[in-house]
């Protein structure tokens, strides 16, 4: 297909003008990564597909709000939406979990959250991110992953790991410091 060479930003600019071929190209480009993330978080193909479907629909609806001029990261934007939808779904499934009060808030939140990817970390190659994550100490990685991928709060993580709350706080802090260090090393 001739349009395959277009950048993500260019595709989103076309999508914002209602050009559906661009949307289809973007879908083919990132659906596997979006679905992989949703499946990792939900452990259920049907729910993961529902989430990916919803995420792409929001990309279609919100493309005009995406800041193409600022060089926003489209892949990160999409994955952030997938992540957010998956976290909301996980929390709805768990009893006694207070739901996010912003659940029905404007979806501009996702647009803003995607801004975090303006940071250089968003441009690291996937295999380098994996390399950095694999070097994290096991307990630090678990705390980060249980929260980030499983949507657990620090109290739930402490309960699941059987560790004191203060220990979980400490591991989260050490894990994040270590992750940033490793990502910077990968950048260099």
């Amino acid at each position: 297909m001739a349009q395959q060479h277009l950048s993500d930003q260019e595709l989103v600019a076309h999508i914002a003008r209602g050009e559906r071929w661009a949307f289809e190209v973007l879908y083919e480009r990132y659906v596997a990564q979006a679905f992989g993330l949703a499946l990792r978080m939900m452990q259920d193909r049907a729910t993961a597909e529902d989430i990916v479907q919803e995420a792409f629909c929001r990309v279609w609806q919100r493309a005009t709000h995406f800041n193409v001029q600022a060089g926003g990261n489209v892949r990160a934007w999409l994955l952030t939406i997938v992540h957010r939808l998956a976290i909301d779904t996980q929390r709805k499934r768990r009893p006694n979990v207070e739901m996010d009060a912003r659940e029905d808030a404007d979806w501009e939140l996702e647009d803003r959250e995607a801004d975090v990817f303006e940071h250089a970390f968003a441009n690291i190659a996937t295999d380098r991110v994996r390399a950095a994550v694999s070097q994290l100490p096991e307990r630090h990685r678990k705390v980060i992953e249980l929260s980030f991928f499983w949507g657990l709060t620090h109290r739930e993580i402490a309960e699941q790991l059987g560790e004191p709350l203060g220990t979980v706080h400490s591991w989260a802090l050490q894990g994040m410091n270590r992750l940033k260090l490793l990502l910077r090393q990968q950048l260099n």
């Binding site: 559906r20 289809e24 879908y27 659906v31 596997a32 990564q33 679905f35 992989g36 993330l37 499946l39 990792r40 193909r45 993961a48 597909e49 990916v52 479907q53 792409f56 629909c57 990160a76 994955l79 952030t80 997938v82 992540h83 959250e113 975090v116 990817f117 940071h119 970390f121 968003a122 690291i124 996937t126 991110v129 994996r130 950095a132 994550v133 980060i144 992953e145 980030f148 991928f149 994040m176 992750l179 940033k180 990502l183």
Partner: peptide, 26 residues
């Protein structure tokens, strides 16, 4: 901090969904 955490999303292996998903999205 959030950028570092969000980079974790990039570490997930891609998985192909069912072909029917594309039809639903479109």
């Amino acid at each position: 901090e959030r950028a570092a955490a969000a980079a974790l999303m990039l570490s997930v292996e891609p998985v192909a969904p069912s072909p029917a998903l594309k039809q639903k999205v479109m």
